[in-house]
Nucleic acid binder design. Structure first.
Lengths: 206, 206
DNA sequence: GTCTATAGAACGATAGAC
DNA sequence: GTCTATCGTTCTATAGAC
């Protein structure tokens, strides 16, 4: 499985500022509640100046939603071709996924919640990218079943379940809670690989 | 654990119509994108007439968010006192939760997504209700561990994980897919009780 | 690339007649 | 309980000077 993601058009540093400010506001208040005025104010320019960088509010949303859906996934999609120990590989992917998503929680949360405000064409494009990752995990689990390193009756469902699990973390995790995000990621990876997927521990084949 | 939910104030049938229409619109377009005009039109009255039934748009949101967070949870919170076989009880709860949420997917999805548009006071109230259910499941898993019917290293995390799993279903399940919602619910309940929570199958204690 | 100024529509909510 | 009428605000987006 090889990445075929098309790159975003090159944008200037101002566009990046706008994107980041908008992302934060969308996260806090929701796409529909955030006006172009509020975005401009957060950047320190006037509303009309935004249109020198983006043609519309929807394009701002699309730009950062595309970024978050190509950055992590694009850099990890090849992991499914790895010939190594599948439970170990998936364990590491889950930990990295959880930590990355937390470090980019504004973009990730806002992106997932506000995705439906994309134009139909953009929504199709983003959905296809997400689908690739989801299918990759499902196929990976199925392959692990055949190898006997996973014992999971429903690989496709398990892939959806584990993605919902780990994407849900950002809605309730608190940095001042009992666990760091790295500790939580580790415990979730255990819960998923050995629990949900029934991975056999090393030297524990039965 | 006994229900102490306070009832919603009695409202007329018109208010119920308004609530249902608003729920559907919030689900489709998001709270911030739906105007009072659109809600009124969907019911077939004028905007100003809405204010004979609700004092504000936020009150419409609050009313249905409160309803969905008291209806199912209120009717199932006593299940954690049940003295029967814990894996069986949790299995049944999960199936009922999934099926109920799918049958009320508009309210559930809109309610979960738009909850943050509630006033701070209302948000606190709703969060507390949800927390009660979550804590109930966590304590139930921990109790099952002590009985030896679950083998789960992290009961509190597992409760959060399973709730994110089953609440995520409504975002991707399609009625024209390979499974009915009842079949899916059954498979998820298996995945959770025997996978995630390490329940021992009858006569399989080891 | 930023600004001032503004178009034209939609927003939540209210007053008061019936 | 519904209506007409409207208030004051905010919305996305554009035109045109600098």
């Amino acid at each position: 499985m090889t990445s075929t993601m098309s790159p975003l058009p090159q944008r200037g540093p101002r566009a990046m500022e706008i994107e980041m400010a908008a992302t934060r506001l969308f996260y806090e208040q929701g796409y529909g509640q955030v006006g172009m005025r509020a975005i401009a104010e957060a950047v320190g320019i006037k509303t009309s100046s935004l249109y020198n960088h983006f043609v519309s509010k929807e394009e701002i949303l699309y730009t950062f939603v595309k970024r978050i859906n190509t950055d992590f996934i694009g850099r990890h999609i090849d992991v499914f071709d790895d010939e190594g120990d599948k439970p170990t590989i998936l364990h590491r992917l889950i930990v990295e996924h959880i930590v990355y998503f937390w470090e980019h929680k504004y973009e990730m949360q806002a992106g997932m919640r506000e995705m439906r405000n994309l134009s139909p064409e953009h929504l199709v494009e983003i959905t296809a990218i997400r689908r690739t990752y989801q299918d990759g995990i499902g196929a990976f689990i199925a392959a692990g079943n055949k190898q006997g390193v996973f014992r999971c009756a429903t690989p496709r469902l398990a892939a959806l379940a584990l993605l919902d699990m780990i994407n849900g973390i950002d809605t309730w995790f608190r940095e001042d809670g009992p666990l760091t995000i790295e500790e939580l990621a580790e415990q979730y990876a255990e819960l998923i690989t050995f629990g949900l997927l029934g991975a056999t521990r090393n030297g524990d084949k039965q």
